[in-house]
Amino acid sequence: MPVEQERAIILMFANSSSEEIKHKPIQKGKALFEYCTMKTLREIEKSNLPYVIYTEKEQRGDSFEERLVNAIQEIFSQGYQKIITIGNDSPELKATDLIDANRTISEKNIVIGPSMDGGIYLLGIHKTHFQKEIILQLPWKTPNLMPAMIDFFRKKQITLHIKKRLRDIDTISDVKCFSGFFKTFSYSFLQLLSYLLQEELKQFRCMTPLNYIAIIQTGRYNKGSPQLINSFN
């Protein structure tokens, strides 16, 4: 089948905002995750590509990687040849990134969008590349995912097209980083980020020394580093 006739679809693999706040340590972050989901959907719709959303309601499996590969396998079984998988937590993602990925994916090409933390925010894969058992063995949700994927696909002699590196939103440190992007995001989004930073600061000021130490030990602030807290002063 000619590349231009192959069926492509975008898979937004992301939890609902209610579920997201259970796993990401951002105080009162539900509104932020809802905003990110809507922003991502707007970019998807601009691409004019069909899409499907898999939240925790549609996902099947005991681990992140199991849920992800099960979703990909299910979509490929519906007759699609190309899947562009993304999350909902990369505010810099644009429709042009999705369009470009669709044009690039083929039996010889794969597209990967690396995130700042060593993971990925986009995976554009052709049906011929999909090997469930092998992909399950990749170090998902670790800083080693990106290099492991590069090694895996290069060994398969598949050409990798690596997109620009973007930051995703996992912690209050990421929120603080995005709050400085004055020319990139809307005023309402920047207001939301400012509110979350203020709420985080309030929580810190109310902590006892013992609570503070417990949070640092559990990696509550940017993998255990107190530098983020100090920067508020």
Rank of each mutant, 00 (worst) to 15 (best):
S77I: 13
E133V: 15
N230Y: 15
D62K: 14
F153W: 09
R167N: 06
F178M: 05
Q131V: 14
E65W: 04
A95C: 14
E200Y: 07
T159H: 14
N211H: 15
Q137W: 14
G29Y: 02
E19Y: 10
D170V: 04
L201P: 00
I158Y: 07
P114I: 09
D168F: 01
I53S: 04
I72M: 15
D97H: 06
N15Y: 12
L160V: 14
I162R: 09
L93F: 07
S179R: 05
N88A: 13
Y121Q: 02
L32P: 00
I215A: 12
T55I: 09
D168L: 04
K156E: 08
N48W: 12
L160P: 03
A95M: 07
K155C: 12
I112G: 01
F189Y: 08
L123Q: 05
R220S: 06
I125E: 03
E34P: 10
I120F: 03
E4I: 15
N88S: 15
T40A: 12
K176S: 02
K132M: 12
L192H: 00
R220P: 00
L123C: 08
Q73Y: 13
T208F: 14
I125N: 00
I150T: 09
I86D: 05
P2A: 10
N144S: 13
Y121D: 01
I162E: 06
Q137V: 13
G224W: 13
S115L: 05
S179P: 02
L166F: 12
D117I: 03
R7T: 11
E6N: 10
A95W: 07
L197D: 00
I9F: 09
K108N: 12
Q78R: 15
T184Y: 05
I125G: 00
D117Q: 01
Q5P: 01
Y121C: 02
S188W: 04
G124L: 05
L190W: 02
R42D: 10
L49S: 09
E200T: 05
R67A: 12
Q131E: 15
N222R: 11
K30A: 11
R42V: 12
Q27Y: 02
L193G: 00
P139E: 09
M1E: 14
L228T: 07
Q198M: 10
L68Q: 08
K132T: 12
S106I: 11
I135N: 05
L32C: 06
L49M: 12
A31K: 10
K163G: 07
S194A: 03
Y35T: 03
H129R: 08
L197F: 02
I75N: 07
Q59D: 11
I75Y: 08
T40V: 09
L166E: 09
I150V: 11
Q5H: 10
G180C: 10
Q73F: 12
Q217S: 12
S47C: 11
A31M: 08
F76H: 11
A214E: 13
L32T: 03
Y221Q: 00
V52D: 05
L123R: 03
L197Y: 00
E56W: 10
Q131N: 14
N88V: 08
S47L: 06
K46F: 12
T40G: 04
